[in-house]
Structure formats: structure tokens, C-alpha cells
Amino acid sequence: MIRPPVSVDAVMLEARASVLTKRSIKKQTKLGGIEIAIGCMDLTTLEGRDSPGKVRAICARAISPAPGVRSAAAVCVYSSLVPTAVDCLRGSGVLVASVSTAFPSGLSPLDVKLRETREAVAAGADEIDMVIDRGAFLAGRESEVAQEIVLVKEACSGATLKVILEVGELGSYAAIRRACDLALAAGADFLKTSTGKIGISSTPAIALLMCESLRDFQRATGRKVGLKLAGGVRTTKSALGYLSLVKETLGDEWLQPQLFRIGAATLLDDLLMQREKELSGSYSGSAYVAMA
């Protein structure tokens, strides 16, 4: 079931997103929000130079970011590094997420994308982060985009499917909303903003737009689908802003790793520093936070 296209107007969308991401978050709420952000984090490394050593470091950090700090939700890596991540994270409760479908462009033959997905799942990936074919979407071949999502979902054989829309390439709020509705109808388990590989990624207005699509889908079908923000969330302040936005648009129940993720590489540093500041009353430096 695909909803008819929804029109979107920028002025009030951005105004509302601005109010929601500027809530004043203090004291216990701030500490709690930091914990939520860590517990919903997909700690990510997606570089051409990623190596088993780097992935092992990331995994160790995801399991135990700092003394007394809870684990992240998942580690997100390229599909060829899934075995290393599976090995490191076994028994930790931290999930393994693999990007797939010729991430980040998505411009490979369909059978290559499906094979990559199947092999990642076979290697132990709990979650697949696929990219949609933006070229097909912008050329108006919507059913092709939807069909590809359906096939990748099949290839996941039970693994969680996150669908990356690459919002920065879609050109308008209305197109982003359309892509959300399409991916939801095709069976996405999570909508994900972006690859993190282009300049424009998560913005408050885009996140709000995606929340609205998720909320309408839940109202129409009863199904709760997750939201993953990726790219551009680098500070505790912006992460807390997104928590408010999700809380007030989708409800408190969305603020758990089953329904919400922040994909990030550097955000964790700031979260740990802000946590330390809240607990001790003074700022420490990055030298006091163990990197990966």
C-alpha cells in the first residue's frame, strides 16, 4: 500500500523542527539523553582504508566505551569486514550491521547487490544497511526502487533491513517524503537518512519529515518502523535535539535501539566528554576519552 504523494512546505516544517531541536535539556535529562544516544548508537567505520585492526578497535569501544558506560547498539562496517566484527562482538549483545547493495552509490547490477546482502547475512550480520537507487528514483522509476527494496529484504532472510535514502541527493522535502513512503511500503525495518559520504545528511527538518512519515505509516498499518540518523550528528547538543524531536513526534517508545539509531563515528567522543562534565562538574579534554 503506497500512500498518495504528500505535499510538504518548507517554512512550517523547518520552524517546527527548530523548536523541537532547541528544547532546553538539563541535568538528569541530559545525562539520560546521553545514555540513550550511546545505547542507540551504530558506531561506524566506513572508509576505503578500513582494516581488521581498525574494526577490532571499534568493536572494543562499542562494547565498553568507557568505564561504567553502557554498550552501543551496533557496529556498522563494510560487508567484507563482517566476519571480523562478528568475531569481536560475539556474546556482547552489540549487533553487527553491514552496509550493502554497492554502498554508497548503489549503482551495481541487482544480482551483485543481492549476493552481497546474502553473504553478509550468512557471515553473521544482524542488520543490513542498503542504499536505494537514487538514479532510478529521480528518473521516476519508483516501482523499480520499491521492487529492489523488496528483493533485498528477502535476501536479508530475517536480518533487520535499514533503507538509506541519501536525502541529500533527492532534491526536495516532497521527494524525501515520497521516498520514505515508498521504502515503508516496500518493507523497510528502519529508514536511514544518509550514507555520510556527501555533504548534506541529517538536518532537523529532514528528521522531522521522516518521523511524520513513520507516524502516518504506523497509524495506517499499526507497524512501528525505526529511524536511523546518519551523518552530521557530531555533538551532544545536536543528538539531544534529535531525541526531543523523535520523542515529541513519534513518542517515548521510539527512544530505544529497536526503533532508533544514530550512526556516527565521532559523536561518541563528545557524548563521553559531556557525560563526564555532568558527573564531575568540569570539562575534560579529548585526551581523557579513549579513541578507537
Binding site: S24, I25, G33, R70
Partner: peptide, 14 residues
């Protein structure tokens, strides 16, 4: 899975 995440209720910010 680890213990449940805390609630995100806004503390007063006067």
C-alpha cells in the same frame, strides 16, 4: 541486551 534505557522526560529548565 543491557538494562533498559532511561526515560527522556524534560527536567524543569527555568
Amino acid at each position: 541486551m543491557a538494562t533498559a534505557l532511561p526515560a527522556f522526560d524534560y527536567a524543569p529548565s527555568i
